Computed example of a mutant assay.
Amino acid sequence: MARSRKPLSVWLFVLLFWVPLAAQSAERVTLEHDGLTLVGHLQDPADRADGIFLMLHGTLAHGRMETMAVLQDLLAAQGQNSLSVNLSFGIDAREGMFECDRPVTHGLQEHFAELEAWMDWLRAEGYGPVTLLGHSRGGNQVARFHQEWDPEDVRALVLIAPSTFDAERAAASYEAQSDMPLVTRLDQATELMRMDQPETLLRDVRFLYCEELDVAPTAFLSYYAPDEAHDTPTLIDGIGTPTLVILGSEDDVVADLPERMGSLADPANVSTVTIDGAGHFFRDFFADDVVDAILDFTQRH
């Protein structure tokens, strides 16, 4: 299924009447968890019982980065509740992009524990069923959270340009970026875990977009150890929960995603929508097409 740009007259109407709504800021909310203050951004124009989107950003980003903020504002304009959260990465009250200026102590399991804490918070605040929504690596991570932690009250998943994974490609990319074989770093992290030293940091290593910082071995392994669960199409093949995957036809970050989605063995609960002309971040009016696709999907589930 593909979507194309709307006529200019529609966009002029949107510009005239949506801008005041978009100017409304999300409410900053906080949650105490594991000795840290977690930060989220809440918009709830609808009855809480109607449910809410729990939104997760991409790699080392935050809940009000451009893509997330625009989608959240557009959802609010359509009467949809949403909470867009910041992963802490072990930083108290973390806001903004991760600046690669401090150690990384949190890996995937710590991320999932934070998502579970937000799920508990939403239940305590009286919100109804949750739709997990993630962009890029955040799409993979909310899907993994759903599959591995089995949280309660999840209505559906919305994965926007979710990440793919190939072990050989990942290893080659890491070595090209760091002049160090990935297997060497994996062996170092594994040895620290074997020696029961999870608090001992790997020093001055390449990690995601950061050229050089200190990383806990558990965090490094959770991101870099070869694991099919890093690959979203593999992860959701045969999933039992209604799942929407949104692709951009011009996305060169996960360029293999359309082909990979087309090869699912059991796509019974997976819907795929392609936004014609959109890149990885669905900037400008492509975000409106994303929200249209989301609402079409959630109204059917």
Results as ranks from 00 to 15, higher is better:
C100V: 09
A117W: 03
R123A: 14
A113S: 15
E114I: 11
F112D: 01
F112A: 10
E99A: 15
E66S: 09
E66C: 00
G79T: 05
L87Y: 11
W121H: 12
Q109L: 13
N81Q: 09
Q72A: 15
Q78W: 06
S84H: 10
A77H: 04
H106N: 12
D92L: 03
L83I: 02
L83R: 09
G90H: 01
A93Q: 13
A93D: 14
F112W: 14
N81M: 09
C100I: 08
T105Q: 10
F89V: 05
A61T: 07
A113L: 07
V85A: 11
F89A: 09
Q78Y: 05
M97Q: 12
L87G: 03
N81H: 11
A69F: 01
R102V: 02
P103D: 10
E99Y: 02
L71D: 00
E110D: 15
A113F: 06
L60I: 03
G90L: 01
T67H: 15
F98H: 11
L83N: 06
G79Q: 06
L108Y: 13
A77S: 13
A117N: 07
G90W: 00
R102Q: 15
H111Q: 14
I91T: 13
I91P: 00
E110I: 03
V104F: 06
V70H: 07
G107Y: 09
E110K: 13
L71T: 04
R94G: 04
A113P: 00
V85E: 05
M119R: 15
N86W: 11
A93E: 12
E95T: 14
A117M: 07
D120K: 08
H62Y: 15
Q72K: 05
V104Y: 06
L83F: 10
